[in-house]
Structure formats: C-alpha cells, structure tokens
C-alpha cells in the first residue's frame, strides 16, 4: 500500500503524542515563554534538593529492586518452563498471562486483601499462633515491591524463556563431555548464553516499574516516587514547570531504556 496510508495515524500521533511531549519539555525549560529565557531552576531543584534527589533515588532504586527480584525469581521459572515442563508448558504460559487479564485495580486490591490488618495473611498468622497482634505490612515498602514484581515478572519470564529456547544444547553437552560439572556448565555456558534475555527483561521491567502509578498510589507505604509526585504537583501544588521537569526526567529514562534494549536486541541478531 502507498506510503500515504500512514498519514492519518502519523499525523494523529504527531499532534497528540509527540507535540504534547515536546511542549512539556519546552515549558520545563522555558517556563515564561521562549522570550523569557531559559530557566533551569526546576531541574536544579530536582537534582540538588536532598528531598527531591531522594525521590529520584527511591524511584530508580525501587525499579531496580523490582527488576532484580523479577530476574532472580524469573530465571528458575523460565528454566523449568523450557527444559522440564513438557506438556505443562502451555498451562504455565497461560498462568503467566492470565493475571494480565485482570485489571490493575483488582491486583492492587488483592494485595490489600492479603496484607491488610484484617487480611488473609494476618488472619492465618494469628490462627497459627505466630503473632497476637496484626502486623502492619502496608506501612512498609515491601508490599509495593511484591505487587510490582507480581505485575511485571511475567515479562521477565517470557523474555528469559525466549533466550533459553535459543540455546544450542550441544554446547552444554560438549561442556559436560569435557569434564565440567552441572553447576560449572550452567554458570559458564548456559547462563552467559542467556544473559541477553535477562538483560532485555531487566530493562523492560525497570522501565515499566519507573512509570508505575496505581501500585504506588495504593500500596506505596510511604514511598515517594516521581509518578506520585507528578500527580501531587498537578493536583495540589500546581507547580507545572516542576511537574513538567519531573515528567521529562521520567521520559528521558524511558528513552534511554529503549535505546539500551534496541542495542541488546540488535546484538542478539534477532528481529532488527
């Protein structure tokens, strides 16, 4: 079909996707119009004020932790799926994708049902006589981490499984025949061959966690992240230049992640 057929979609996204992001970037740099000159004060505040620097650190740190835990949990699951599951592989894939069918509100609500003071976990612990007063899980950051991992770990598993599927088993056999043990073979042959899959999954989870809003809003347990702060600035403080600067930083982080991912995929030589 002629190239012109891309015009409606291209123009629509130009007008309602690219232009708003560009305008937002512009407003954060020239808050009083281009004639008013460049003002980097919002960025200065973000990168110099210890409070906002802390928020930035918490945002990236939380995403890093979520991605790292997802990788640690996801690798064995992916390994099981590709190498051991056999006819259960389809079932496991279904179980991985099924949570994606439920709304984000439902999953977030589910964590509250599990972890609140009157929730299932506290009720179980009390029945078993382990505790006599409910634990305030929601007051800390770990429920948010668990919920993030819950939402994002399927992406990690699928990414690692894809690269495990591509591993040439003869390389592992060769390593075994040459006298390496199971563990050595895994650490020196299998794992290095699948690091690209881990990397792609890691970046994807990190990127998605950076922008996550609902999970943090409802389960944050006192954590302050950039998406929450953007909403606060928008809703109450109404400091638009500062909110614009913060969303720009999130945007740049996303673009960097995308570029990294594209590099990884290109290096792997799979679909350019």
């Amino acid at each position: 079909m002629p190239a012109g057929w891309t015009a409606p979609a291209g123009l629509f996204l130009l007008a309602f996707f690219l232009a708003p992001l560009a305008r937002n970037a512009g407003v954060s740099i020239w808050p009083n119009g281009v004639a008013g000159g460049i003002d980097v004060q919002p960025y200065q505040r973000l990168f110099a004020d210890p409070f906002y620097l802390g928020v930035l650190g918490q945002t990236l740190g939380l995403s890093f932790v979520a991605a790292a835990i997802s990788a640690l949990i996801g690798y064995p699951v992916a390994f099981f799926m590709v190498r051991k599951a056999g006819r259960f592989q389809a079932l496991l894939t279904f179980l991985l994708i099924a949570p994606l069918l439920t709304s984000i509100i439902m999953r977030t609500y589910g964590w509250r049902v599990l972890m609140s003071r009157l929730g299932l976990v506290n009720a179980l612990l009390r029945n078993l006589g382990i505790i006599d007063r409910p634990i305030d899980f929601l007051g800390g950051p770990w429920v948010a981490v668990a919920a993030l991992v819950h939402v994002l770990v399927p992406f990690m598993v699928l990414s690692i499984a894809a690269s495990l599927q591509g591993v040439d088993r003869r390389l592992e056999e060769a390593s075994r025949l040459l006298g390496a043990g199971r563990v050595a073979t895994f650490l020196r042959v299998t794992l290095p061959l699948t690091l690209d899959g881990v990397g792609t999954g890691f970046i994807l989870v990190f990127m998605l966690a950076n922008g996550s809003f609902v999970t943090l809003l409802l389960l944050g347990g006192g954590l302050q992240t950039l998406p929450l702060l953007i909403f606060q600035q928008f809703n109450t403080t109404r400091d638009f230049a500062f909110a614009g600067a913060m969303s720009n930083v999130l945007l740049v982080a996303a673009v960097l992640c995308l570029a990294l991912q594209a590099r990884l995929i290109r290096r792997r030589g799979v679909r350019a």
Binding site: F17, R23, A254
Partner: peptide, 28 residues
C-alpha cells in the same frame, strides 16, 4: 522510512502513561 514509521507508531506503548497523561492534558 517504513521502519522508522513503525517505530514511531509503536512508541506510545513504551512511554510512561503518567507522563503522557500529564503532557496531553495541558496541551489539550
């Protein structure tokens, strides 16, 4: 051009939604 256009048309899916929502609201 087609590859570039494909990347552009797919890109909204990778943007943090909160950033898109915030920017778009002011723009509109």
């Amino acid at each position: 051009w087609a590859q570039g256009m494909a990347a552009f048309l797919l890109s909204p899916v990778s943007m943090p939604l909160i950033v898109l929502g915030y920017s778009l609201l002011f723009y509109l």
